[in-house]
């Protein structure tokens, strides 16, 4: 399996630059990073990709077995890093990809120089004293929302979603495929995303980490960001003056500045 086409991997920036891997969250694709990633391409090797099932990834590579847990997605990340032979890479993961990065860095710390977790949550569903913010019934309701909104999706959309890198009408297709995906895959990914529990994995992280938390975020509330910060040894927490779950879209300058500062201190230390 060719990981380049499987994950529609795109690489920009100088060959010798420090690798910076951006990983999108549930619902969208690598285009989510387009207000942030280009700022780093001058002196970093910037790697973008789509998780299998999202954006222009190869839908035929999707396998319900492999992707029945976040470990499957983490294995993909490690395969991409191995293919590009990345060392000392800083992994920037949004939402569910924050935990995918945590799992990948625990499985093979040798490739990671740091983790930037944007809006992370190790568990969305409340459990005892732990407040993830959602009940199991809420998650079922999300799955229903997905079903209602994918009624318009048809098999005819599939060719537009499937990655055809050499096609020139990229901009057009981007609009068509953005946030679009096969409903069965989206439903499956939503279930895996919102029903995972990775609280115990946080303590196993050995690489330096930064938590970027929005002031108001109903998906990953500030208390959840603080929980992640407390469990990650030696992590930093930066509270962004932004609302919503996507600071890289709603507050790209602040997000970029916080990542740049983390990179600066990592390279000077």
């Amino acid at each position: 399996m060719d990981v380049w086409s499987r994950n529609h991997v795109t690489v920009t920036g100088p060959e010798g630059g420090r690798p910076l891997v951006f990983s999108h969250g549930f619902g969208c694709d690598q285009n989510m990073w387009r207000l942030v990633a280009p700022a780093f391409a001058a002196d970093h090797r910037v790697v973008l990709f789509d998780h299998v099932g999202a954006g222009r990834s190869d839908l035929s590579a999707w396998d319900p077995e492999r992707y029945s847990s976040l470990e499957g997605y983490a294995a993909d990340v490690l395969e991409i890093m191995a293919e590009l032979d990345l060392r000392d890479a800083v992994f920037v993961g949004h939402s569910v990809s924050a935990m995918i990065g945590v799992l990948a860095s625990v499985a093979d710390p040798s490739r990671f120089g740091g983790l930037v977790l944007v809006g992370p949550s190790p568990r969305y569903v409340d459990d005892g004293d732990y407040r993830g913010g959602f009940s199991a019934a809420d998650i079922e309701e999300l799955l229903d929302s997905l079903d209602s909104n994918y009624l318009g999706w048809s098999a005819a959309m599939a060719p537009a979603i499937m990655g055809v890198p050499e096609r020139p009408e990229l901009g057009q297709e981007l609009t068509e495929s953005f946030c679009r995906t096969d409903p069965a895959i989206a439903r499956h990914f939503a279930r895996v995303t919102f029903l995972s529990d990775n609280r115990d994995d946080l303590a196993a992280v050995t690489v330096p980490s930064l938590v970027l938390q929005c002031r108001e975020d109903i998906i990953a509330a500030p208390a959840v960001g603080e929980f992640v910060h407390r469990r990650l040894r030696g992590s930093e927490l930066v509270l962004l003056d932004a609302t919503g779950h996507c600071p890289h879209l709603s507050a790209p300058e602040q997000t970029t500045a916080a990542i740049a500062e983390f990179l600066r201190r990592r390279s000077s230390s």
């Binding site: 989510m32 959602f134 929302s145 318009g152 919503g244 779950h245 996507c246 879209l249 709603s250």
Partner: peptide, 29 residues
């Protein structure tokens, strides 16, 4: 919005609006 709708809003609707300046015919409660 309902809780499911809030999640959908944050993961699909808001990014779509930011990226494309519009979001059409979303089914929400």
């Amino acid at each position: 919005l309902s809780v499911g709708g809030k999640l959908y809003h944050e993961t699909h609707y808001a990014p779509m609006l930011r990226m494309h300046g519009e979001a059409r015919e979303l089914a929400l409660d």
